[in-house]
Structures are given as structure tokens and as C-alpha cells.
């Protein structure tokens, strides 16, 4: 149990990037009426940007 919890918390930035930032970015794109490039949908853009931020934070160990 402890191992599972530790593992989940360890990959917290990844989970936050995909679980929260992805829909957040997608919904901001829709709210401001911005059209993503390359025919990407708002959700796909959110997934790329939010996921990338999560991966970077996971590697660096910090968001800022």
C-alpha cells in the first residue's frame, strides 16, 4: 500500500499534467476562441502542452 502511494505521489507532476492541465488548457482555448495550428483540436493541444509541462516538471522536480 505504502509503495503504491509513494509511486503515485512520485509521478504527481505527470498525473497533474495529463489529469488537470490538459482539460484546463483545452477549455481555455475554447473560452478565448483560439484556433490551434495544424488542425489540432483543443483537447489534443491541451494534451500536448499539458502533458509536456507535466513531463518537464517530472524530470526537473519542479514547475517553476
Amino acid at each position: 500500500m505504502e509503495k503504491v502511494i509513494r509511486s503515485v505521489f512520485y509521478i504527481g507532476p505527470l498525473i497533474f499534467g495529463f489529469g488537470f492541465l490538459t482539460p484546463l488548457i483545452a477549455q481555455i482555448i475554447v473560452a478565448v476562441g483560439w484556433t490551434p495550428p495544424f488542425g489540432l483540436s483543443a483537447l489534443a493541444t491541451g494534451l500536448i502542452v499539458g502533458g509536456a509541462l507535466g513531463v518537464i516538471a517530472q524530470i526537473r522536480g519542479r514547475w517553476v
Partner: peptide, 18 residues
């Protein structure tokens, strides 16, 4: 906390949750 944030976000209320 994070469970509620994620649930709200994927239900279309991400900006409100933030």
C-alpha cells in the same frame, strides 16, 4: 483534493476548479 479537481476538469469545469 486532486481527485475532485480532476473530476471537475474532465466534466468541463477546469477553469472554475482552477
Amino acid at each position: 483534493f486532486y481527485g475532485i479537481l480532476f473530476a471537475l476538469a474532465w466534466s468541463g469545469y477546469a477553469i472554475e476548479a482552477a
